[in-house]
Design a protein around this nucleic acid. Structure first.
Lengths: 219, 219
DNA sequence: TAGATTGTTAATCGATTAACAATC
DNA sequence: TAGATTGTTAATCGATTAACAATC
């Protein structure tokens, strides 16, 4: 049985918490403790952990350090992945500067844009390259991941070209839904969804607003 | 019966699609058409729409323009909300520049930071103010929403102070899980979760990778 | 009217929670 | 050993999908 998206989403939360417990010097943590800190049911924690193939010790709990390492490995974070950044606007720059990617096994190895004013400019340790050079680079390096931070209008044509060149996964920040072959992985980020939820919860009468655990990001 | 988070997340997708259909000149759209374009079940579309209290026309479908307006209203986007931005690093700047907020009823009316080099600098039409002035402003203006784009270390203390001053909802980009009274709404954004999913899907054998519909954002 | 489409009730599916036997 | 905690099977819950009567 394959792991559910819901489980998958919780794994980074476990990792963060385990890293914290590790820094506090804790060797072991029980499912009840992890559940309490993350406001989850303890059975759910055990199910999630079991899903990844890790086993704990009855009477003791889970070994903090090895569980964290195991989860990192399960998520494929131990074999660093390289990605190219398409679009170096303000969002692209924020993404390029985001240090959290490294921690989760992603490294941006090239940045592209169409704006002549940006091409040649440094961005971190990279230099912005003209977009037309991207397909060739993808072909040569067999790059698999593209982070799409271009305006909505440009997203589809750019994605088509990159998919042709061999990109297997798009992390799509453009806000434009992409039509691509089913073998291509597309992961959309959409602030509008989050904002909709926030806005709606704010519009509810104060009393009836429970503190829900919601999807979150680390910057 | 209150609307589910899953339904709520789909509403902005409907809105986007309806806006597009509207610009194509379509007056009506059936649930089957909407479902096809968003890769959902048509019953789900009808359920979602019904949840918001909108009714379609048998034999015709849903009136595109009025459904979009209805959804906007349902999500509370018609009464613009004001927010303050806390932290004007690269991410804060990207958020400040993000034009999509306006479309979804959110307006950033002030930006704060602790960095003396940033204080006094312009950011869009705003000027960065010293963070210590934020609580007073929240008290005076009864501001309800704070967008938290500070480093993880600073998130909790800053949130505590702002919550005391009267902030009712935090949009938390800091990556730090916040402990706040249950009446306070916290909505976490976490790129790590998305990355975990993307990474895991990439590590699966190519054949078994279905194109899932996933959470997404618009920039 | 006939027939396409909505709105809604019933069935299914999957995820979460409860219960408990296995383990150390 | 006794007892706490894991791992797992069963029960529950909620969301999605199927079926179909109501509508225009």
């Amino acid at each position: 049985m394959s792991i559910s998206a819901a489980s998958l989403r919780r794994l980074p939360q476990y990792m963060k918490l385990l890293a914290q417990l590790e820094s506090e010097g804790l060797r072991f943590a029980t499912s009840a403790e992890l559940a309490r800190r993350l406001k989850l049911d303890e059975t759910l924690v055990r199910k999630d952990v079991a899903m990844t193939g890790f086993t704990g010790k009855p009477r003791v709990g889970f070994e903090v350090e090895s569980l964290r390492a195991h989860l990192a490995n399960f998520l494929g974070l131990h074999q660093p992945k390289e990605a190219i950044l398409i679009g170096v606007g303000r969002l692209g720059q924020a993404l390029a500067a985001y240090r959290g990617f490294g921690k989760y096994g992603l490294r941006i190895v090239a940045a592209f844009d169409t704006d002549p004013a940006k091409i040649g400019q440094p961005i971190g340790e990279l230099t912005v390259q003209p977009l037309w050079q991207a397909p060739a680079m993808v072909l040569e390096t067999r790059m698999q991941i593209a982070i799409l931070a271009v305006p909505a209008m440009e997203a589809q044509p750019v994605a088509d070209v990159l998919a042709d060149a061999g990109i297997r996964a798009f992390w799509n920040f453009s806000g434009q839904p992409l039509s691509l072959p089913p073998t291509i992985i597309v992961h959309d980020e959409d602030l509008a969804e989050s904002l909709a939820i926030l806005s709606h919860r704010l519009s509810l009468p104060e009393a009836s607003v429970p503190t829900l655990a919601v999807v979150g990001e680390e910057w």
